[in-house]
Amino acid sequence: MIVSGGFNVFPREVEDALTGHDAVSVAAVYGVADDKWGEAVTATVVLRPGHEVTPDELIRHVKSVKGSVQAPKQIRVVDELPRTPVGKIDKKALRAQWGPRS
């Protein structure tokens, strides 16, 4: 669970909203330390082959599906997500790629 601005945000719900977009194949949502929000909802996504979408379009999509509270503050598009030795998405590695936001 991510606590952002005093609200509880469940990563799975945001991931489901992101993967509900035609362009998104896989999404990982996690909290990143943020001076203003406590934790900023943050996402890293992999797009489906042949699709293009901007991070801003994806943020607007989540806002339309789940509302502003659950919308990521930032989204990174990558070719593949890091995995743990057992094959799970490594959210600790993703979180480490972002520094604290001011």
Rank of each mutant, 00 (worst) to 15 (best):
P49A: 11
V3T: 07
V32L: 01
L47F: 08
H21V: 14
E15A: 03
S68H: 06
I2S: 00
H61C: 01
Q70H: 12
V24C: 09
N8L: 07
E13F: 02
R76Q: 13
E57S: 02
T84Q: 10
R60L: 12
V45M: 10
L81Q: 14
P55G: 05
V24L: 07
V32A: 03
A40N: 03
V69W: 12
G20N: 06
K36V: 15
F7I: 09
D90A: 10
E80S: 14
L58W: 01
D34C: 04
P72C: 07
K66G: 00
L58G: 02
G50F: 00
T44G: 03
H51A: 15
K91L: 10
P11V: 03
E39C: 01
K88A: 05
R48A: 14
T42V: 02
M1F: 09
K66W: 04
T19L: 02
D22I: 07
V77Q: 09
V46F: 11
A43R: 04
V24P: 01
D16L: 12
D22S: 13
Q97G: 02
I89P: 15
R101G: 06
A28D: 06
A33R: 08
A93R: 09
H61D: 10
L94W: 06
K66N: 06
E52G: 12
A93T: 09
Q70C: 06
A96K: 13
V69L: 10
V86M: 05
V46A: 01
A27E: 14
R48D: 15
V53D: 02
P85L: 07
K73C: 14
V29W: 04
I59S: 04
I59N: 03
K73T: 15
W37L: 09
E80Q: 15
R95C: 02
V86E: 00
V78D: 08
S102L: 14
S102Q: 11
T42S: 14
E15K: 11
I75M: 08
T54A: 03
R95S: 02
I75C: 00
R101V: 04
P72W: 02
D35Y: 01
E13V: 14
R12W: 06
H51F: 13
V29E: 15
A27M: 07
S102R: 03
S68E: 15
G5C: 11
S4G: 05
W98K: 00
S64A: 15
I89L: 06
A27S: 10
A43H: 11
R101M: 01
Q70R: 01
F7Y: 10
Y30M: 05
G50E: 01
A28C: 03
K36M: 07
P72V: 10
K63E: 09
K63D: 00
E57G: 03
F10V: 13
G99S: 05
A93E: 14
V53C: 02
M1D: 06
E13Q: 13
P82K: 05
I89W: 12
D35C: 01
D79S: 10
P85A: 02
R12M: 08
T42Q: 11
K36F: 13
K92M: 04
E52V: 15
G6C: 11
V45R: 13
G6R: 01
E80V: 13
K91N: 09
V32N: 01
V62N: 04
T84K: 07
H51I: 12
S102D: 02
V78K: 15
V65P: 05
E52Y: 10
A28F: 00
T19Y: 08
H51R: 03
R83N: 03
T19K: 12
